[in-house]
Amino acid sequence: MASNTNTDIWIAGAFAAFSVDLLVYPLDTIKTRIQSPDYKKLYTQDGRASRALFRGLYQGVGSIILVTLPSAGAFFTTYEALKYTLNDAVPPNSTLFMPQPVINAVSSGGAELVSCAILTPAEVIKQNAQIAKKDVKGVSPTMQVLKEFRRHPFRLWSGYTALAGRNLPFTAMQFPVFEHLKQYFMERRRKQKGGKVDGIFERASITAMSAGIAGSGAAWITTPIDVIKTRMMLAAGRERHQAHESKDLGKFLTEGLASKSSKGMWETAKEVAQTDGIRGFFRGAALRGVWTALGSGLYLGVYEGGRFYLEDSRKAKEGDAVMEKERDWSKVKVGIGGSRSQGDAVRKSGWQDEAD
């Protein structure tokens, strides 16, 4: 593990999330619209994709960027901390054996549970804003969605179970493969360059390639859960009055989230199967695979490059400070000492004669 501080990891993770959101958000919007139950009615014409599918591709981006920054920082901080703790608690020669892929999977899973708790409300707002029609009065889609949830804000967390249900298997598959590929490509590059990988850009490129390969496969496999999650979050925006809603946050989290969300996932899955068949569970799978390959590559590549840059910058500053502190000027002799050209007899300078 690189010697990064928690601040380094948080900043690098947040910057990576911000960069990726801006670049790949339009693909995420198209994916959400393809997976929505109203796709054929709203975004197709004569069996083909209509122009409406490609309009307003950045609708809802503001909410997700604001919450993604702390969410991504929390994910990477938790992931690195858990991975370091487990590696330290289970040394290679210990009687308690835990393979490295298992450590990576457990660490990423714990990090996802923390991240999803922060991200869920923004994800619900984002996905409902992505399919919202622009108001004639000039009200933004995000504000329209916020107005819908104003009376029932607890519904913003109704998709937590579905989001965690998608992200946990995704990261459990992606991160072990990602770490293995990164190590493989790093070792291969070291052999090609005589035992060393130089430069932040080279490290970031290897990380991005490894993350893209691992992410695309995991994305395709978890697409059915992603479809269910999208349908549930869009349904939360359409259902304005639900009898089970409560103003008691504690009761909602302990009862509503545990039982109602699980039932909602099962009911949503049955609805998808009845209306679209098995193919409906893989709607947008190809686009999601491409989007995730690009997004994961940029995400983890920028994160890796960012944390190594911050580490190198901090080490450079610390090195300069140590050198300045350890330098003992009292031992520096000016004008006194042996010289090959002068022999052993060296005269003192004029200012030293005056001092004596």
Results as ranks from 00 to 15, higher is better:
W291V: 09
S63C: 11
E245R: 05
P141I: 10
I228W: 01
G335I: 12
F149W: 11
D28L: 13
L22G: 01
D344S: 14
R231I: 04
G13C: 01
G284M: 01
H152M: 12
F75W: 11
G301R: 00
M233K: 00
S216H: 02
P169F: 00
D276W: 00
R151H: 14
G165I: 06
L82M: 15
G165M: 05
R238D: 09
T254L: 15
L53A: 09
S140C: 06
P141D: 09
V124I: 12
F97M: 11
A286Q: 05
I9G: 02
S339W: 10
G60V: 04
P176E: 06
S115A: 15
G280P: 00
G109L: 11
D276T: 01
A285S: 08
D312C: 09
R279S: 10
Y309M: 09
I213N: 05
I221F: 07
G110A: 12
R166T: 12
T223W: 02
D353I: 13
A286F: 11
P70D: 15
R188P: 02
K229E: 12
R188N: 14
Q352I: 13
R238W: 05
E123N: 10
S50Q: 09
V197W: 02
Y309G: 12
R33F: 03
V227E: 01
P92H: 08
F154N: 06
E318T: 13
D135M: 08
G335W: 06
A129Q: 04
F75H: 10
T44F: 07
K83E: 13
F149T: 09
G109P: 04
G338A: 13
I11G: 00
R151I: 11
A111R: 01
P70A: 12
L253E: 07
S259R: 15
D135N: 12
K191R: 11
K193P: 02
R340N: 11
Y25Q: 05
A293D: 01
V106C: 10
Y43Q: 03
K331P: 00
K31M: 10
M265G: 03
V177L: 15
P26C: 08
L298S: 02
W329S: 08
G194S: 10
V61M: 03
F178L: 11
Q352W: 11
D353T: 12
V139H: 05
G277M: 05
W291R: 03
R48L: 15
R327M: 13
Q352R: 14
I200G: 02
A211V: 04
S339T: 13
S349R: 14
G335H: 07
E187H: 05
T77G: 07
Y58A: 07
G338W: 15
L156F: 03
N104L: 10
